[in-house]
Amino acid sequence: MDSLVVLVLCLSCLLLLSLWRQSSGRGKLPPGPTPLPVIGNILQIGIKDISKSLTNLSKVYGPVFTLYFGLKPIVVLHGYEAVKEALIDLGEEFSGRGIFPLAERANRGFGIVFSNGKKWKEIRRFSLMTLRNFGMGKRSIEDRVQEEARCLVEELRKTKASPCDPTFILGCAPCNVICSIIFHKRFDYKDQQFLNLMEKLNENIKILSSPWIQICNNFSPIIDYFPGTHNKLLKNVAFMKSYILEKVKEHQESMDMNNPQDFIDCFLMKMEKEKHNQPSEFTIESLENTAVDLFGAGTETTSTTLRYALLLLLKHPEVTAKVQEEIERVIGRNRSPCMQDRSHMPYTDAVVHEVQRYIDLLPTSLPHAVTCDIKFRNYLIPKGTTILISLTSVLHDNKEFPNPEMFDPHHFLDEGGNFKKSKYFMPFSAGKRICVGEALAGMELFLFLTSILQNFNLKSLVDPKNLDTTPVVNGFASVPPFYQLCFIPV
């Protein structure tokens, strides 16, 4: 009986604490739906499609509103004006990374994606500088992407125009580009180590996009005490870190300090320079996690976009025909596509942009946080508050993009057929937390897609009208449904 009384008292205290925290903070924060004790607004949000729920709530509470995930307040920004004001106009104040408990377990605050403060700034600055020195957006990395595009075309030829699921092959190409940047090595598509790495990356994007992960991140005790797919994700990350550590040891034994070959060499050189400046942010643990982040951000996002792009091109054969006509006119058949071609191919450029806009790969991006107490639109948001960005509300804005739910390359073309930029184009987020590999991803999408369409016609196994382009999961990332196609050599 005594234990029951204690339990009831504990629960009562928890409920009172929950109510007090919510009521004391709500006077400062933007308005929002009334949260339930302990669980907050979790029942009012469709976990399978958070973005749709945010759109519905914005119609009631406006472009800036507050939700509670458990006891934790989260300020939501919906629509271009609110997102721009926060991420661009007040970029420094909104540059923090929001709480992501599962990532905390995986990387302990290291790396480039989930770190904060001085650690994040130094690692991000170093990573950007190193990638630029190796030619991100310049010639040397373009050579690597072109080489991988040629290998991709050869792998597709091996399908002999038979029906195939493109998931694996389209994942190999961007993964190999990242391998060449980090390890100075590309792998054969049949290499077992490479296959294991690909498998872990593919599993992780599916797990991260599941409703279960949303629950884990908002009720963090689940991570330590409950079984579930989150444990598989943590094991996959541990596998990748151990693999990278092996490569780091190989580099330490063979590195030429006067001739760095890749990202690992550059990081080890930085560690050597910083060894007298303790404590340094440049450690082996930081290198492991930064490399894992580059793999995660640079492989599955690009391969998922490529997979979605081919599905949309199957669905819209008239678009595919126009792209192939432009390829034939500008590039021809006797040389590989290059980035200089893009400025002469406005329709193809528009298609690449429209694919990214339409699929809305990361509907709410990753959570941000404010780095200080900030007054925002007459609300006071306390330091450390998590900020949720609705990228969907920007990419699918119906004023900027008429009929935003329709796939239409003319969203990025003017009346004369010239490519038209849009400030609403934010597939990689915006501001200080914009994806480090934005330029690389854009290069890969253009070169891989043009190389495929230069060499193959795409054949659907069903009537294009019957192809479903609805994402199968739409949590962290929008993942396309399973499909097969035939690559018919031109």
Rank of each mutant, 00 (worst) to 15 (best):
L445V: 14
C151I: 05
G62R: 01
K375C: 03
L128I: 12
A106I: 15
V436Y: 06
G137V: 09
F295V: 08
N277L: 09
P37V: 05
K270R: 13
N466I: 13
L29K: 04
E203L: 03
S336R: 08
K375Q: 09
E415C: 07
G109S: 08
L197G: 01
I123M: 15
F65C: 03
R125V: 05
E326R: 02
A321P: 05
V6I: 13
E300N: 08
V248I: 15
P211H: 08
D349R: 15
K206L: 05
T301I: 03
L314D: 01
E246G: 08
L170N: 00
N116C: 08
L467H: 02
N202V: 01
R124G: 03
Q44H: 11
I223Q: 10
K241G: 04
S286F: 06
K273H: 09
F94G: 06
S127R: 01
H411Q: 03
R124V: 03
I374C: 10
K399L: 09
H276V: 10
H78M: 13
Y68L: 02
L4F: 14
K52S: 12
P31I: 06
G96A: 12
W212H: 06
V76A: 04
D468M: 12
L54F: 13
K459M: 09
P402K: 13
F94I: 08
K52A: 11
K399D: 13
D49C: 03
Y379L: 06
S393G: 14
T348W: 02
D143H: 11
N403L: 06
P489E: 04
T302C: 06
S140Y: 14
K432M: 06
T392I: 04
E326I: 01
L77G: 01
Q252T: 08
P166G: 00
I215C: 08
D143G: 08
C175E: 01
I359Y: 07
D188W: 01
F110D: 11
L71H: 14
N403R: 10
P464S: 05
G46V: 05
L362S: 12
T167L: 01
F94Y: 10
E85L: 09
P260S: 07
W212G: 07
K72N: 11
Q278I: 10
L268Y: 04
F168G: 06
S365G: 10
V237G: 04
G46Y: 09
I215R: 06
D262S: 14
E155I: 04
N258I: 07
F407A: 00
R377C: 05
R108Q: 15
K315W: 02
K206I: 04
F110Q: 12
I327K: 00
T34Q: 11
S140C: 10
L131C: 10
N334S: 14
I327Y: 01
F194K: 00
S254T: 14
N418A: 11
L170R: 00
R335C: 06
Y308G: 05
I327V: 09
L208G: 15
L43F: 14
L87Q: 07
V352S: 05
K235H: 10
I123H: 12
T371L: 08
K28E: 10
Y243H: 06
I123V: 15
M271G: 08
L170I: 07
G117M: 06
Q252G: 06
L311E: 00
N398Y: 11
N403I: 06
N133E: 12
K119H: 13
Q340G: 12
L71E: 10
Q356R: 06
T371W: 05
H184Y: 05
L195R: 09
E93G: 12
K399E: 13
R342S: 07
M257L: 13
A161C: 14
A161D: 04
P101T: 13
N259Y: 08
N455V: 08
E85N: 06
L233V: 15
P33L: 03
G135M: 09
S58R: 10
V352F: 10
F226T: 06
T320L: 11
Y483S: 01
K235C: 05
G62E: 01
S286Y: 05
I213E: 13
P489V: 00
L388E: 02
P166L: 01
D414R: 04
N455R: 06
Q193P: 07
V352Y: 09
N107V: 08
R124A: 04
F446H: 03
T229V: 15
I45D: 05
L311I: 06
P480L: 02
Q192N: 09
G171S: 14
H344M: 12
A103H: 15
L54H: 05
C172D: 00
T386C: 08
L311R: 01
L201H: 05
S422Y: 06
T301Y: 00
T299I: 05
M406S: 14
L43Y: 09
P31M: 06
G384I: 00
S58Y: 13
S280V: 10
E81A: 11
K247A: 10
Y189C: 01
I374Q: 06
H230Q: 11
L366Y: 03
F401N: 03
R150F: 07
P63C: 08
P489I: 00
M406D: 13
F487D: 00
A369R: 14
L7K: 14
S365Q: 06
P166M: 00
E85A: 09
A86H: 05
R335A: 08
M271I: 11
S336F: 14
W20M: 11
L234N: 09
E354F: 00
F100L: 14
D165C: 01
Q340N: 15
T290I: 13
S209H: 11
E400Y: 10
R377V: 02
S53F: 06
K59I: 09
A149V: 02
T305N: 05
L4S: 15
L233D: 03
R329P: 00
S478L: 07
C175N: 02
P35V: 05
P471V: 04
V83L: 10
S115I: 08
H276L: 10
I434P: 08
P409L: 02
D188G: 06
A477V: 12
F401C: 04
I488R: 05
R335E: 06
K138I: 11
K399Q: 12
N398I: 09
I359F: 12
T348I: 05
E154L: 06
T302Y: 01
L449H: 01
G96I: 05
S254F: 09
T320G: 10
P260L: 05
I205V: 10
Y347S: 02
D89S: 10
C175H: 02
Q22T: 14
R342Q: 10
D89I: 08
L7N: 09
V394L: 15
E272I: 08
P166T: 01
I182R: 00
N455F: 04
C164H: 05
P101Y: 09
G117T: 08
L294I: 09
C372L: 06
V479L: 15
V436H: 05
I178M: 15
S451V: 07
S460E: 01
D408I: 03
V177C: 04
L294M: 10
M271P: 05
I207M: 11
N418G: 11
P260Y: 05
C164Q: 08
S51T: 13
V479S: 14
D143P: 05
C164I: 15
W212T: 07
E199D: 10
E300T: 12
F412D: 00
S24V: 13
L233F: 13
N41T: 05
A477M: 10
L485S: 01
L485R: 00
K72P: 01
F482A: 15
L67I: 12
T55F: 12
S3Y: 14
G96F: 08
V330K: 11
E148D: 00
T304Y: 05
P166I: 00
M129Y: 11
K28V: 12
K375P: 10
A477H: 07
C151P: 00
E122C: 09
R132L: 05
K375W: 10
M426G: 05
L391C: 08
R108L: 08
I123P: 15
I488W: 04
R377P: 04
N133W: 06
M443I: 14
S3V: 15
L87A: 11
E285F: 04
V394G: 05
N334D: 14
N236K: 00
G27Y: 14
S162E: 15
L458G: 01
A173S: 03
V323G: 01
S220T: 13
C175A: 15
I141D: 00
V248A: 07
E326K: 01
L90K: 15
E272K: 10
P35F: 02
Q454I: 02
